[in-house]
Design a protein around this nucleic acid. Structure first.
Lengths: 294, 294
DNA sequence: GGACATTACGTGTTACGTAAAAATG
DNA sequence: CATTTTTACGTAACACGTAATGTCC
């Protein structure tokens, strides 16, 4: 199982096209075809259906493995690179949209600037997988990721890579809905009551996939998609009745956009969690200082 | 980072010799030399000191990554193979020495034989890493691994591979010592009190490395080594005063070998835990049935 | 000097690109 | 029929083995 082949496989699967993958990876279409043939003959399974190009059942399974494997490979390389290079005088922080706006984090950054005035600090916001990947690859020094977790648990999104994590903040979650929604006056409602409601899927802010995971159901099908990352817009959409969305109460309350109701989730006991995670910290590096401050 | 090179690297590191690695892997010494040169030039780091051959600091770091990566690679292949092949009519269980002898497990096996009389059951006992590796590679259908964990925690040894685990049994632990040991009459003693005592290191049964991890110390240096897997022998050694050892009370009490004292560990709150773990279970497979029974 | 790792060099295999053929919608 | 994948084939790079050279105990 050559990582090279794995990489083109995930690219092909993502783009749904040999030719497109060839362009992106800088190969010929023919090369891609040969690589996929080689991979399939190595594993003795058909991984892709052609025309249209889509992963088979086995291919889908392989995709689940391929990501973490490639990530770990990158992480190993990045880790060794970090050992060699001199500790940099800059700090690049990656975060998901909802992970920002933490008082604790802003405070720690301020303290860091006081301690190490010379380090240039960069904050880069992106979707969850990109942040995780960036940290594993060493492109980001630390990552701040938010997500839903069971009451006591941590996100444990680091299972796929050799990263360390620490909880930074925790908040209750609530369903955002128009003020005139029939359930708007209730204080708390079991999440299950909303399984068949109209939901907004905002993959980069409040992804329904996570809600499904927490509720252990296949429900919560998207009726509306919001592909941006702006919380204010999302809340406005929910307030206008386009669909429900689940947000941390701390954040939803903060955004004073128009009129909306926020109903706490009574059950299951889920919380919105923010975690800081990072690879092996080099003693004395800005990232290590920041982690110590949180 | 070619897995091929990674594999020879770990082999070279393990054997401490290019020539020996060449023999084991079926290559020429020259090939090994070239492969290591290629890996080092790829990563731009010296990984091995020669004469004697031993990993450098960077090499040691890479070794920490290499194991999990290679394991995951094997696991992916095994997972796809399991999808393709017809569900086998046999069940191969791997376990660590102390994981056997569980009433619950024996009962589940009996129930399994009643439900599926035709399946041939094989139990294979081996050291922890071999069991984990075997399950990840699909050579073992399920693994039963024991180890020390903090009171509420699980072993979480599955972090390196895409495996699922479930707790099966839990027992208190105690220090085994001769009956005439000065502390033998005590009911419970903090583990820290034994940091500088004579300890038996039995890597395959009661490894000191794990005790160190639980106690968060560098102490517990081995004064005696027992490389077998037989609990009775180990207890006899401890009873004869060759050194202390830490065993689950359930098991130590069971072995009626000679005279020995068993002093419960007062602190930290650690337990001996047995977990069943496995890759993706195929519906209807013997392994799935067994997991359902536990 | 002996055991072991490195370098040099020749060879077979692999992996890609170009180009033609096949297949699918 | 157009788009896209597959196959055929030539070439360049690669990886290994043999053998010679170097190096440390």
């Amino acid at each position: 199982v050559d990582p090279h082949l794995l990489q083109t496989f995930v690219t092909v699967a993502r783009l749904g096209s040999f030719s497109a993958a060839a362009t992106e990876l800088g190969y010929t279409q023919a090369a891609i075809s040969q690589q996929m043939a080689a991979l399939e003959s190595d594993l003795k399974v058909t991984l892709l259906n052609r025309r249209p190009v889509a992963p088979t059942e086995a291919g889908a399974r392989l995709l689940e493995h391929a990501g973490p494997i490639l990530l770990r490979l990158d992480a190993a390389r990045a880790d060794l690179a970090r050992m060699t290079q001199s500790p940099s005088a800059s700090l690049v922080v990656g975060m998901t949209p909802l992970a920002g706006g933490l008082p604790a984090f802003a405070g720690a950054l301020a303290a860091l600037r006081a301690r190490l005035p010379r380090v240039a600090i960069t904050v880069r916001v992106g979707p969850r997988p990109d942040v995780a990947t960036g940290v594993a690859r060493g492109e980001l020094d630390v990552g701040l990721i938010d997500g839903l977790a069971a009451a006591g648990d941590s996100l444990s999104l680091l299972a796929h890579a050799p990263l360390s994590a620490m909880g930074v903040a925790e908040s209750e979650v609530g369903v955002v809905m128009p003020k005139d929604h029939p359930l708007a006056h209730r204080a708390a409602i079991p999440l299950a009551d909303f399984v068949d409601a109209r939901w907004i899927d905002a993959p980069d802010v409040a992804p329904l996939s996570e809600i499904r995971r927490m509720a252990r159901t296949d429900g919560f099908r998207p009726a509306f998609s919001y592909e941006g990352t702006d919380t204010v817009s999302l809340i406005a959409l929910a307030a206008a009745g386009h669909g429900l969305t689940l947000l941390p109460t701390a954040l939803a309350a903060l955004a004073g956009v128009g009129d909306f109701a926020l109903v706490r989730v009574a059950e299951p006991r889920i919380v919105h969690q923010v975690e800081l995670f990072h690879g092996t910290l080099r003693h004395g590096s800005p990232a290590a200082e920041l982690a110590a401050l949180l």
